[in-house]
Amino acid sequence: MNVVAKPEAAKSEAVKSEAARAESSEGTVRLAIEGPVARLTFDRPSARNAMTWRMYEELADACRVISATREVRVAVLRGAGGKAFIAGTDIEQFRAFSSGGDGIAYEEKVEHYVGTLEALAVPTVAVVEGWAVGGGMALANACDFRLATPGARFGVPIARTLGNCLSASNVQRLVATLGVSTVKRMLLLAETPKAEELPPGYVTVVPPEELDARVAELCARLVSHAPITLRVTKEMLRRLAHDPDAADADLVRETYGSADFREGVEAFLGKRPPAWRGE
């Protein structure tokens, strides 16, 4: 039996179909909040999750939702398809560039998105399967923790691909986490080292069959810790990355004046687990 949809229903289905096609070509960033854990999925597996402007905007939107959701204590970022975290920015978008001014505008936009992720108040975990290069490297690097499967590749091989450059702020971020020698090998030699070859502590390599369990374990550990302490510490580290003499009085006052601090003291003296409220 053929069912003919009413005009309104047919129009609705056409709009949904068009939206699905746009999503398929431009990709999307999906946000799912499960209790204290927010999960962001970069979903464009046909292009190894290369970021379009739509995806960057959705990432920023997701960060705003996470920041406004009091219950969230940790955010996990992962690429769809199991073949890549993010394979850079969609190169098709560079075809519209006609001058150096376009490069300035582009780097400023990337800085905004990376900075938005970096400034999230909750701890962030990048789960890397396959490639984290270019913009993907910048986003994974902006996270607080990285878990990767064996052989996962990290880097910014622009010296042998596009011939562009990074902004000073993004180079500084890489140097702060990887050290200048590794960054020189990534940028000047265009190397994309495996996870196992990166400096100790930068990434935890996990067998594929154990990855989900290790992610859950790390999230549970972070969720169990004092949220104000984590948030204030993240903000102190962010400030110090830009200014070694950064002010901290507001953060210290907020922490020591919190109900959580009083709860921590009483719990410790009472020899019981603290019940953190984030207040």
Rank of each mutant, 00 (worst) to 15 (best):
A138F: 05
A87W: 13
P207M: 10
P207D: 07
V215A: 04
G103R: 14
W131H: 13
M236D: 08
E111A: 14
A142T: 11
L187T: 00
R48T: 09
V156D: 02
E279N: 04
L240R: 04
A105R: 01
F97C: 12
Y202Q: 02
L211Q: 02
L162S: 12
M1H: 01
A190Y: 11
R146F: 04
L147Q: 03
F145P: 00
R231S: 14
V206T: 01
V127C: 01
F268S: 07
R160T: 13
A152Y: 08
T177S: 11
A14R: 14
P123H: 01
T255A: 05
H225R: 15
V110M: 09
E107L: 15
I91M: 10
Y106V: 13
R73M: 00
S17K: 15
L147T: 06
M137K: 06
E209H: 03
V74R: 04
R173Y: 00
L31R: 14
S17P: 14
M51Y: 02
A138H: 08
I33N: 00
E92F: 02
Q172H: 13
R185N: 09
L120C: 03
P208Q: 10
A105M: 05
G179W: 03
P199G: 04
F268P: 12
V76R: 07
L40V: 06
G103C: 13
E107R: 14
V175W: 07
A220M: 02
K11M: 13
S17R: 11
